[in-house]
Design a protein around this nucleic acid. Structure first.
Lengths: 229, 229
DNA sequence: TCTGATAATTAGTTTAGCCTAATGACCGTT
DNA sequence: AACGGTCATTAGGCTAAACTAATTATCAGA
């Protein structure tokens, strides 16, 4: 046996990789990621984030405006997209090749994404025919770091009468994902908004002949593409 | 996204896992693992080992006799065998399912073994039909922590005239492994010891009609089972 | 414009792992 | 029995990444 082998490009620690991913997700709609949002997402205390932001901006991965928040530099964005590619390829691989349920892949991928090599990810992607979306419908960045950006609305915001295709489920809670699958609410599903109760009330949708009533909270996680209205 | 997910049974750090594995390998023929052997295997300084030995014996994973060395407790041995199972299942999976070469699997498995869940290992093992040996011929511990112990001799020690089956290659250097594969020296190969030069000289073996001359250093890595002599 | 709430940062600790330098134990030889 | 060499351990430091407590910015409302 040999010494434990480190990943060929050593600079990024697990922690750094997690911070970059969080910042990516928090800024994907533009704007800054705030210290407390990052802290909440990673479940660490805000001072831990302040400290890390200092280091990350020193290494050129983020742009930090004190008391405002942070954004990724090109370099940081590229690294974040690498991680997201790894995560999503792993999710597809685990579901398609190893029988994982779409509710259970996130946790496993979350650990593996820090340990896999680019070579392994490429092999997995190859074995899967270079998939473009993960099991939750999220687009997979290319090896070069490009990602599809789609115009999406949440079901909670979609107009009554609109016809939609459910594209992404913005959640990773296994129980909620299982429930959604039972209800037939998986990416690719075509649905029509039948009605919505006021005061953040539930939305009723038609899936073919079936009706489903979706609470506000869940509806806000269902990202859809508008087909017509 | 959520906070980074930790492995369900959290206590063992990557480092601890590596130390346990090293100690297992160093003591598999019985006896104690010494501080400097562990240090050499993990490529750390001896004082780092002393420090870790203190912690590991406090947590009951090893028995430490100062200035003598260490041995695994039952608990430590079990944990080490878990890691070895993970490593070897990963190696088989990477070679059989993802086209890895037997010389390249070690490094990838070395990183992944710390990140995979038991569930994933079981799925991989299942997909492979619960293999009993890794690509280098080493036995894979069961999920319960049992491992086959075979009586093996290195080719360097085998008697001239003996007929052997090459069982394990005790090396993980990709270049050496590639060379061995080219020479047809892979686990399962049947061979006869034709002659050996004195003073740690090379050993000549017959593989069917073919002859191979194997240097002392390499011969010491080829663990064989004696069929007859 | 002041004030208070909220959010961000700084200061100071902790733990895991590593390091080098200094010290101490063991063992084979004389 | 003492010596010297090798090996192990102790002492003391360093870094990454977390924490709590204390301090400072910012901003919205009175």
């Amino acid at each position: 046996m040999h010494a434990p082998v480190r990943n060929p490009s050593p600079p990024l620690t697990r922690s750094v990789e997690d911070y970059l991913k969080s910042i990516y997700h928090l800024t994907s709609q533009g704007g800054f990621a705030t210290t407390s949002d990052i802290a909440a997402m990673l479940e660490v205390a805000p001072p831990s984030v302040s400290g890390m932001m200092k280091r990350l901006s020193e290494t050129g991965l983020i742009e930090h405006v004190p008391y405002r928040g942070v954004q990724l530099t090109h370099q940081g964005r590229h690294a974040a997209l690498q991680m997201i590619r790894r995560h999503r390829i792993l999710e597809v691989y685990l579901t398609h090749q190893l029988g994982y349920d779409w509710g259970d892949v996130h946790e496993e991928a979350e650990r593996l994404e820090h340990a896999v090599s680019d070579k392994l990810i490429d092999r997995m992607a190859g074995a899967l025919g270079d998939p473009r979306y993960d099991p939750h419908g999220a687009p997979i960045p290319t090896a070069a770091g490009e990602i599809e950006e789609a115009e999406l609305v949440t079901l909670a915001d979609a107009a009554v009468g609109a016809t939609l295709v459910l594209s992404q489920v913005g959640d990773e809670n296994p129980a909620r994902l299982h429930y959604l699958a039972e209800q037939g609410l998986t990416p690719g599903t075509r649905l029509t908004v039948v009605e919505r109760q006021p005061f953040n009330g539930p939305t009723t949708v038609a899936l073919g002949a079936e009706r489903r009533v979706v609470g506000q909270e869940l509806a806000a996680l269902l990202w859809c593409q508008e087909v017509s209205r």
